[in-house]
Simulated scan of single mutants.
Amino acid sequence: MEKELEFLHQLTPEIDEMIHLRYKILSNISYFQPIGRRNLANRLKIKERKLRNELEILNDRHFVQVSANGMYLTQRGEDMVNKGRDIIRTLTGLSELERELKILLKLQEVIIVPGDSYEDEVIKQELGSAASKLFRRLIDSNFTKEKCNAKEKDSKVIAVTGGSTLAAMAEMLPSNLNKENLTVVPARGGLGEKVEHQANTVASQIAKKLNCAYRMLHVPDQLSQESVKSLLCEPTIKEIITLIKQSHILFHGIGRAEVMAKRRGINEEERGFLEREGATGEAFGFYLNREGQVIEKVNTVGLTLDDLDEIPTVVAIAGGRDKAEAILAMIETEHDDILVTDEGAARKIIESIKI
């Protein structure tokens, strides 16, 4: 496939732009449908006349249908979006970028999707799709019937954090995967996210797709030290924390320090401290500087950075060029094995490393 696409690229280099544009139109309709033409043109930042011409072609080829409520994708259009992801990756030369970033960050694997989620929120869906494929590959290779006993006492544990990208991963997983030998758990307590983005919700949605067990952790994300100690003495909480720390695979997001500080309601004085100390990233309640050193931590219930050393496979999922420094901060802690990110973040990370 790569050789054929490279041939087409050399013969007709303008084909790249056409394929990218039409794929972007289809993926945006898929994400926002039903959507009007003017709204779509604004999101794509192209002239409405140009969009109209492209939509006529896509409609004639039965990829798009128009209704009074707006535009939808046909089943053929949805299939094209799903099949087109790998082709777009090849056209954008992301395989070479993945190899370069893997070496620079000293990771087992790097997966990069085209685009920049900082500019286009649809790319979060692409990140979710890539993460869901990785999720299936990891559970298929690590948790086959031959490797796992389906009895509850031998159940393998998968932990997930919350966030919009992790929620997209859960959404993109196919239904009825039938992995009864697994248990899905939230990696930590809630964080005041939208309900659909909370770790408990993501864990339950994944478990539904896998047809397996799940457990919930019904505690806030930030508590006083005394409250944490008290909660950890509760038998039910103690049991779920023990289970979470036995995770075999962890999928987690990464946050920008200033964004997470505001979300947690940290006061202005403490936010100023984090800024002065150079905090750029946040994960598991730890605020990290560019070198991966801990600047500050909040009292949380669930996994901590130290726990990650005991988890065989740790996957970070985060994108957007605005998160490049935050991603670097987390990778510098040397806890992650695999990174799923987007082109915007990847190129910014490489640029930062080479400065």
Rank of each mutant, 00 (worst) to 15 (best):
E4I: 15
L8D: 01
Q10L: 06
T12E: 15
I19S: 07
H20S: 13
H20R: 14
R22D: 10
L26N: 04
S30F: 10
Y31D: 10
G36H: 13
N39W: 07
L40Q: 04
N42Q: 10
L55R: 06
V64Q: 10
V66C: 09
M80A: 14
V81C: 04
N82R: 15
K83P: 01
G84D: 11
R89T: 13
L97I: 07
L105H: 05
I123V: 15
F135C: 08
I139T: 01
T144C: 09
V160M: 05
T161S: 14
S164L: 09
S164D: 04
T165Q: 01
L166V: 01
A167K: 08
P174I: 09
L177V: 12
L191A: 13
E193P: 04
K194Y: 11
A199I: 06
K208Y: 06
K209S: 02
K209E: 07
L210E: 03
H218C: 06
Q222G: 02
Q222C: 08
I244N: 09
I244P: 04
Q246D: 08
Q246I: 02
G255D: 12
A257R: 02
R263M: 12
R264H: 11
E268K: 07
F273W: 08
G281K: 05
G281T: 04
Q293P: 01
K297W: 08
V301T: 13
G302F: 01
G302M: 05
T313R: 10
I338M: 06
R347F: 03
I350D: 03
I350F: 01
I355V: 11
